[in-house]
């Protein structure tokens, strides 16, 4: 179980990104995080694996306080938390397989990994993960030769190499067209259902939230505005989350 307690983040320069956010996620749950751009969704996700250092509050995962972990402990915690990004964040000049194998860096022998040597089992696993997102034939191409949808699938394969318990997806479909968006979301759904991985996914489109999420939370200016089933988001709630002038699309 992942528990977020009174999480607050103030960036240097005084921007209040998160204010006193508390919620919890059950193992195997698919949680959608919605809210306007700049509402603190990305910050929230990055606090969970401490790519962003929280100002105060606690994040407790299976009884361990992530916010209090030392740097070395954090590396161990991170390898169980996969992350998927809006802009894929692949190393574009490296091969697809190298990008996927990078997901194992937290597990392998550090000295050997610096020489780009991975165990055979990891190579096999990488090919398996690429097969799972149906791009095993692209494994030895350079990452920037792939299309956007393919690159995001590489991103998923990289996250899955970590054998994660949690996947943090930061607007994984925001730079893809609607058809590709559904296919990427379906991969996340499969991972969630079949592997029982907890997914925390920030999304822009409510129809995707309705279709894929078990539960949704909403942020507005860094405050938690809503926590419940996606069906409960009616017009009134919607206006609360997105502001009075907002109109529903999709």
């Amino acid at each position: 179980m992942l528990e977020i307690k009174n999480l607050t983040k103030v960036y240097e320069g005084g921007t209040q990104a998160l204010t006193d956010v508390s919620f919890s996620v059950e193992p195997g749950e698919f949680l959608a995080i919605i809210g306007l751009s700049g509402s603190g969704k990305s910050t929230l996700l990055r606090c969970i694996n401490r790519l962003v250092e929280p100002t105060s509050g606690q994040i407790i995962w299976n009884g361990q306080d992530i916010t209090a972990a030392s740097q070395d402990e954090m590396l161990r915690i991170r390898r169980k938390i996969g992350m998927i990004f809006q802009h894929f964040n692949l190393v574009s000049r490296s091969k697809v397989i190298t990008n996927v194998l990078a997901g194992r860096l937290g597990y392998v022998n550090p000295a050997m990994s610096l020489l780009n040597r991975f165990p055979k089992s990891d190579h096999e696993m990488a090919i398996r993960q690429l097969e799972r997102v149906s791009i095993a034939d692209q494994a030895y191409k350079r990452a920037d030769e792939l299309s956007g949808g393919q690159q995001q699938r590489v991103g998923i394969a990289r996250a899955m190499m970590q054998e994660p318990d949690i996947i943090l997806a930061d607007e994984p479909v925001a730079s893809l067209d609607p058809v590709l968006a559904h296919s990427i979301m379906q991969y996340l759904e499969t991972i969630n259902r079949e592997d029982g991985v907890m997914v925390l996914c920030s999304l822009h489109f409510l129809d995707l939230v309705h279709r894929y999420a078990d539960r949704a939370i909403a942020l507005n200016k860094g405050r938690l505005m809503f926590d419940g089933s996606p069906e409960e988001i009616d017009d009134e709630k919607f206006k609360e989350i997105y502001g009075k002038e907002a109109e529903r699309i999709g």
């Binding site: 990078a102 860096l105 970590q162």
Partner: peptide, 20 residues
């Protein structure tokens, strides 16, 4: 972006430099 992604896998400092 790639640096962030590699850090998120639990890679240490040197690994991040070499891979990202």
């Amino acid at each position: 972006g790639p640096v962030e992604a590699v850090q998120a896998t639990g890679a240490n400092h040197l690994q991040t430099i070499v891979y990202a």
